[in-house]
Design a protein around this nucleic acid. Sequence first.
DNA 1: CGTTGAGTTCGATAGACGTCGTACAGTTCG
DNA 2: CGAACTGTACGACGTCTATCGAACTCAACG
Lengths: 121, 121
Amino acid sequence: MESQVEQYELTHPSADAVELTAVLAALAEPMRLNMVRTIEAVGADDGMTCLDVREKGGFTASKSTLSHHYKVLREAGLVVMWWVGAKKHVRLRRELVDARWPGLLDAILRAELTDQKAPQG
Amino acid sequence: MESQVEQYELTHPSADAVELTAVLAALAEPMRLNMVRTIEAVGADDGMTCLDVREKGGFTASKSTLSHHYKVLREAGLVVMWWVGAKKHVRLRRELVDARWPGLLDAILRAELTDQKAPQG
DNA sequence: CGTTGAGTTCGATAGACGTCGTACAGTTCG
DNA sequence: CGAACTGTACGACGTCTATCGAACTCAACG
């Protein structure tokens, strides 16, 4: 069996189909930004399941809300998702984003850390 | 007379008051992204007037719409604005943005150029 | 002082967006 | 098969946002 869940098609945009404004809009949402940060923090090649992201990030949003945000991140080209049995795995598309906009993701993800501290400590 | 137009207060956020999500949201709007790109392209220390931005960028939006976008950019911490007589000048706050999120603005502004070209030319 | 020019503010409106509950589709396990 | 688990799709609701026109403020110019 190749694709378990054929109903839910997982269309990922190609490198040249990704738009900068879509990426920025996706990351402009606080919860989505935290989701990306959480996914990045673990960053296993196997990816992590959506449930893992929910737990690690401490997100209290409903399933449908989380699913919606995953969709936005995926369509923006920020993450890849694939099925493993009944669970879905997610991973950052660093290769794509870094190739298209070098330094962008680094700047944003690094910012998340310094954002908590004082400006000049 | 110190401030000609005291009615229209120009409050600029301080460095530590600027939020990443606000910056990303501001730049996620295509017209605002183009406005920033236009402001950056000229980049004089005197800044350029709002009318100059409008002309150089070829924006056809109404005055009120432009004014709204300027406000968003200013409150996000991306630009500084000041009055010179009846005209308003605008300049990028690269110092602030670069200090807070190194590489972010570079990545985004550089992207605007490569965005027009083929992915691998 | 009236006119023009530059920008803001104030509604209004239409569309997008975040959130949720419910219903549904697959997978896994007993 | 039925139950539990994982995740999506849909409709609804409230909020935010981009856009505009009209009325306004202030500066510059006559």
